[in-house]
Design a protein around this nucleic acid. Sequence first.
DNA 1: TTAAAAAGTTAGATTAAACTAAGATTATAA
DNA 2: TTATAATCTTAGTTTAATCTAACTTTTTAA
Lengths: 169, 169
Amino acid sequence: MEKALTPAMEDYLELIVKLKQENKVVRVRDIAKGMNVKMPSVTSMLNSLAKKNLIHHERYEYVDFTPLGLKQAQKALHKHMILFNFLKNVLKLDSEHADDEACRMEHAVSSATLKKLVEFIRFIELCPKGTFDFLEYFKSHCRDGSSKEKCEKHLKESLEKFFPKGRVQ
Amino acid sequence: MEKALTPAMEDYLELIVKLKQENKVVRVRDIAKGMNVKMPSVTSMLNSLAKKNLIHHERYEYVDFTPLGLKQAQKALHKHMILFNFLKNVLKLDSEHADDEACRMEHAVSSATLKKLVEFIRFIELCPKGTFDFLEYFKSHCRDGSSKEKCEKHLKESLEKFFPKGRVQ
DNA sequence: TTAAAAAGTTAGATTAAACTAAGATTATAA
DNA sequence: TTATAATCTTAGTTTAATCTAACTTTTTAA
């Protein structure tokens, strides 16, 4: 079994993916800038990543992924984006903070929790038009799933209890 | 300015608080067990914490907090509990996972984000009986606060749009 | 009341991730 | 086309957190 990546390694991989998208080509200088470290730290980390078969790197040349490395990087980036989305669109943090925080949270959050979070966001976005007893409903959604129809049905039922006369005004 | 605590230091302080509550008295053996490390690691960390004026520790004796250390420990524990609450009661993770995860997330989450999260949970718990356009409403809640009355008013207004006839059934 | 067990410490090594200083390679431009 | 600048690497150091092995102190119980 392969040993798990360290948080720092994940951060580097993620940055490398982004740099590749932006610049086509990935160089030590830019990784250093992006990670806020000095170039020798990058060289050293690149050696570690290469030893783990996550990147290719020949002395003085550009950096590139192995297939394994690319997969890992994308996985990390995916986690990042979900957390970013939650922080920005649910908790309403500004983009910069949301990005910082997501970057640190990635390494703490298991994929089980991430899945739950995705469910939760999906739920909120599916039923933004409101529902009664939100968390109770979320629980049943986790068990049985949701649909627009179910939401409306649930809403009607809940309204009955809340406004017993059946009238809204 | 005091240098910030490392994640590990926060973890130790938090555990020490818990042990003190459980056992009255805090000993190296139990810290080692609680942190899943060997005793020499504990001794070494206790020296660091003492140097930072967070605990008292005389050779071969029990560990205790300084006032500063207690404050830090309680702050960390507070963060932990909020995250635990979110993971358990909102995302519906089981207790053990929620605790693990909270322990790792603590070090990633800023107090600004924590505050937002508390707001969010408070909102959910205040208005569990449902509201329309959830996130939009959460935003206005962040601006202006909420109350049961506001929630009901908002709900009625939203219902008007959703069931134009004014009838629920 | 003292020998064995339990608890704690010290010394020294290891690992990951950073750093500085100095040297090597590559690219640029006068 | 060669001197300078930019980029990158090597070598060696530092810090935080861990470990093992060996030693010391304290506790326990025969």
